[in-house]
């Protein structure tokens, strides 16, 4: 695996890319949960937004930590995704957030590497920051961007999602649609590209398409009647190739 810094979106193709398995079983990072089996009932009774008394503050502190660290939304998400895989599976949602707050503050140079652990150990932290910037709302700027790049696909086009994608960096391709073909349902404007933006490699604005997949094709082993169930996924143009132009 490459380090996140050198991660690139790499499409493998042809003979080296046999589709031998349902995409739900292809090796996937822990946060990429769509379609995985082995999960029990949804706890429909857990309708509250915060479960534990400390969670509201974890939410707010993490928001400020993101702003202070100057992590954009994609780098924020990638921070969560870099959690230890076993911990990702077992920690609660806001526990993953507050650990990401520490990760962002350290990597952003706002606090010293051991400042939080020192404080947890009851010691005074060393290497305290000298910055005096005030925290601001981290999510103000948004991600929509105009692009001069031509829009390659239109509503009705049949497109295929890249199959072999390097997942060592940030990506927003749900694993269950990798290698699958679907129909463009909506052209959803142009946006910063998470795969570069998360790693400080620029915004690289690109078109986003809502692509509709027939669930019976995604999970052929399941008893799903074709047309009775579909999944629409928002996909960035670099994730897609043209399968068939609409008539």
């Amino acid at each position: 695996m490459h380090s996140p810094k050198s991660a690139r979106l790499t499409a493998m193709s042809g003979a080296s890319d046999p589709i031998v398995e349902s995409p739900s079983r292809v090796d996937r990072p822990p946060h990429d949960l769509g379609g995985r089996s082995g999960y029990g009932p949804v706890r429909t009774d857990e309708g509250e937004i915060f479960g534990e008394p400390w969670e509201p503050r974890a939410f707010a502190v993490t928001q400020f930590a993101q702003g202070l660290s100057e992590f954009n939304t994609d780098a924020f998400r990638h921070g969560i995704e870099r959690e230890d895989p076993d911990l990702y599976a077992t920690l609660g949602y806001f526990d993953r957030w507050i650990r990401n707050a520490e990760r962002m503050l350290v990597e952003g140079g706002v606090v010293a590497t051991d400042a939080v652990s020192a404080r947890l150990a009851g010691e005074e932290p060393i290497g305290r920051t000298e910055r005096t910037t005030d925290a601001t709302a981290p999510l103000g700027r948004g991600a929509a961007r105009p692009t001069s790049s031509p829009q390659l696909f239109d509503v009705g086009d049949r497109v295929r999602v890249l199959h072999g994608v390097d997942h060592s960096g940030h990506s927003r391709i749900p694993g269950y649609v990798r290698g699958q073909a679907g129909i463009v349902e909506i052209v959803n404007d142009s946006w910063v590209f998470p795969d570069t933006h998360a790693h400080g490699r620029g915004e690289e604005p690109c078109w986003v398409y809502a692509v509709r997949f027939d669930a019976a094709a995604l999970w052929p082993e399941d008893a799903i009647v074709a047309g009775s169930q579909s999944v629409v996924v928002d996909l960035y143009e670099p994730y897609l190739t043209l399968d068939r132009k609409s008539d």
């Binding site: 534990e52 400390w54 707010a60 400020f64 925290a135």
Partner: peptide, 28 residues
């Protein structure tokens, strides 16, 4: 304990003058 991590981080940021507890309260 995530609750202690929240407190540790909040206290670090507040003492460094980077955020106030009032601002955190307001966002919550």
């Amino acid at each position: 304990d995530p609750s202690l991590r929240v407190e540790a981080i909040e206290s670090l940021l507040v003492e460094a003058g980077l955020v106030t507890s009032e601002k955190i309260d307001a966002l919550v």
